[in-house]
């Protein structure tokens, strides 16, 4: 009985995947042009120094030292929610940049294609890190238990062998290279929003 139910579930998953691929193939025509106006206003600012402070083991140790176990748990939950929000923003920004890079790859200029490839590679790294960290954080938040006392947030610095903050900084650098032709004021707003 279970094997038949699982078989149907797998067949349904496969059918949905087929429909998705068909949609991908179909939506190639007509191709949508994406430029800087489709990127800069859609980015959410990510405070990297805040992320650094959340992941700092010394700050966490100080918190644990100053607060009692109950208050530390509460503070830790707040820090987790904050970091979850930061990873959500990172993932969103990476998605916006991936779409831009995918459109840029159709350019006839090999340098632009190369810069778009580098941008896409970093953005995918950020998306993977955000996905894995998001799963981990949601699981920890779901537990609502004493485990929060023993889970140092510094462990979230890397997921799937990807250093999140380092990869995000690399993404910003790749974005700087990809948008080098923009006027200075637009570049400023790009960096502010990233």
């Amino acid at each position: 009985m279970f094997s038949i139910i699982f078989t149907w579930l797998i067949v349904a998953w496969g059918a949905l995947a087929c429909i998705y691929m068909l949609r991908c193939a179909w939506s190639r025509f007509p191709r949508r042009d994406v430029d800087a106006d489709d990127v800069i206003p859609f980015l959410y600012p990510v405070d990297i120094s805040l992320a650094e402070s959340i992941l700092d083991p010394a700050a966490e140790f100080e918190c644990r030292w100053k607060l009692g176990p109950r208050r530390f748990r509460e503070a830790q939950r707040k820090r987790m929610r904050l970091y979850l929000e930061l990873t959500r923003r990172m993932a969103h920004n990476a998605k916006v940049l991936v779409e831009y890079a995918a459109a840029e790859k159709h350019s006839h200029d090999p340098r632009r294609v190369s810069l778009a490839s580098a941008l896409q590679e970093k953005a995918i790294g950020v998306r993977l890190y955000s996905l894995l960290t998001g799963i981990k954080l949601r699981f920890w938040l779901l537990l609502r238990a004493d485990i929060l006392n023993s889970m140092p947030l510094a462990h979230l610095r890397s997921a799937g062998e990807i250093d999140g903050l380092q990869t995000y900084s690399a993404l910003k650098t790749a974005a700087a290279a990809a948008f080098i032709q923009l006027p200075a004021d637009e570049q400023d707003s790009l960096f502010r929003n990233l």
């Binding site: 991908c24 995918i124 998306r127």
Partner: peptide, 9 residues
Amino acid sequence: VPLLGLRWR
């Protein structure tokens, strides 16, 4: 593909 933004082609 939609989760990470991978290139499908």
